[in-house]
């Protein structure tokens, strides 16, 4: 079942067109990744879906409802949680307060979910009375993910969870992301600079360039593409010289 589908989204920053017609589909239970260079429009896409920005054109269909143009809090109520780039935890609130804020829009009890979050992130339970500002970067990322989970979302959007984390911590975070997906069935839309780990974790991917989708498909297909290998996975071409400065032309196939 398709949880989220965007059609021909166009989003502007003033006169600058950041999304030039983006159509993507996210199915129930999937992890879908959006790859792209800096400034490609990945975060803009997330913000547009979350209601932080309004699209100029295009539709966003979420579980059969049109959500384009809704206020962010309404989008959260509909069941989309955004784990923003750079964590954005509330530094002066305790960890538990931060987590409870994640469930703010819910009317039912969130006690089970708190236990669930603590189960996946034991370190948060250990330090639940401390102010979130004292956590390390990796722990803050865990907190941000946990906070997102507290809304019990139908779709979780993760914007660069690996930002500023060591490779080892990145692996740990992605391990948990994969587990959450497999064990809890959380559908995820994942924006990531680290294409290696994103392609290893996700089921499906889109490549965004200059606000347009240039390539789409299963992660196996993407991983096999020469362009992805050279431009996102950093494979160095096998030349006779030890270094290679020039880039081949992208063809996206």
């Amino acid at each position: 079942m398709t949880v989220l589908s965007t059609r021909n989204l166009e989003t502007f920053y003033g006169a600058i067109m950041a999304l030039r017609g983006v159509s993507i589909d996210v199915d129930q239970g999937e992890i879908v990744t959006i790859l792209g260079a800096n400034g490609a429009g990945k975060t803009t896409l997330m913000k547009t879906i979350a209601g932080l920005m309004d699209p100029e054109k295009g539709t966003i269909d979420f579980m059969g409802d049109q959500i384009a143009g809704l206020d962010p809090d309404r989008v959260v109520q509909k069941g989309i949680a955004l784990v923003p780039e750079g964590r954005e935890v509330f530094p002066y609130l305790t960890i538990e307060e931060n987590l409870r804020l994640g469930a703010y829009t819910r009317r039912d009890s969130s006690a089970d979910d708190l236990d669930l979050v603590y189960e996946y992130f034991p370190i948060l339970k250990e330090r639940r009375r401390q102010a979130a500002g004292f956590l390390s970067g990796g722990q803050q990322q865990m907190l941000a993910i946990g906070r997102g989970l507290m809304a019990r979302p139908r779709l979780m959007m993760l914007d660069e969870p690996s930002l500023g984390l060591s490779p080892l911590l990145t692996q740990e975070i992605f391990g948990i992301i994969a587990r959450l997906n497999a064990e809890q069935g959380v559908t995820m839309l994942l924006v990531e600079q680290n294409a290696h780990i994103a392609l290893a974790t996700a089921h499906k991917g889109y490549v965004l360039e200059m606000g347009r989708i240039v390539m789409a498909g299963s992660t196996e297909k993407l991983r096999a593409s020469d362009d992805i290998q050279e431009f996102y996975l950093g494979r160095t071409g096998e030349t006779q010289r030890d270094q290679k400065r020039w880039k081949r032309r992208k063809t996206w196939r």
Binding site: R7, N8, E10, R20, G21, S23, I24, K57, G58, T59, Y206, R212, I213, V214, M215, A216, W252, R253
Partner: peptide, 16 residues
């Protein structure tokens, strides 16, 4: 692409 975008015809990559 411009034609499709103006008429809100969904597409992702060139093949689609």
């Amino acid at each position: 692409e411009k034609f499709a975008q103006d008429r809100q015809i969904p597409f992702s990559d060139f093949a689609s």
